[in-house]
Amino acid sequence: MKRTIPVLIASIAGLVLIIAHFVPPAQSWGDEVNTWFQILAAFAFFLGGGSLLKMHLKRISDQQEGWGFSAVTLLAFGITLIVGIFKLGVLPSETYPTKPWSGEYLGDGGALWWIYQYLFTPLNATMFALLAFFISSAAFRAFRAKNTEAMILLVTATIVLVGRTYAGAFLTEGFNPHWQLAAIIDEWFMSVFNTAGARAIKIGIALGVVSTSLKVLIGTDRSYLGSEE
């Protein structure tokens, strides 16, 4: 029963969506399922939060290695959650000036806005920017022309890297100043070889999704329910 009911719910919801897609009079059924999905998705936030608390509290109570990071995570989670839910520092909206909580949760000057602007944004951008350093180190250490395939990859990468900057135009403008040879070659690689590969991958993924979805709908694939225990 514990597994049969979830499988039934998944199968019915999936079948309704398929019918709603192909049978226009049944379209409203699909809308109903979509609305249910959004309500359920909201509850998933609670589950996610609960799971995060459970995992990190356990690490702290067991004094596992790196438990300090768990404490920082929970502190950040708690502060962000409280200032967001209570809209601390957010001014009421112009439409409802007498209602204290009517302002947008990320309203200018609010505590959540401050966290986003001065903590989240620089940290997030820094993490991504570090890629430039790791890629440059990897370019030196790992990109070796050890065989023909690697050689083709390296030559293509070099053309695309140069073609995506002014260097490509500068190096090839001798051919014709109004005709960017490097950019054209770069575009040709992207539009012909890359597109052919991308389309093949996308069609393959789509077929895989159809096959997996069918297995879920008829109940043979129950991996999304977790382990049997």
Binding site: A132, S136, F140, R144, A145, A157, T158, L161, Y166
Partner: peptide, 23 residues
């Protein structure tokens, strides 16, 4: 922002070449 991209890309190309020459 294309200025940093130009020099960054050229550095990577240079590192690939140097890496392969040494290899």
């Amino acid at each position: 922002r294309m200025g940093p991209q130009l020099l960054g890309h050229l550095l990577i190309v240079m590192l690939i070449v140097v890496g392969n020459v040494l290899y």
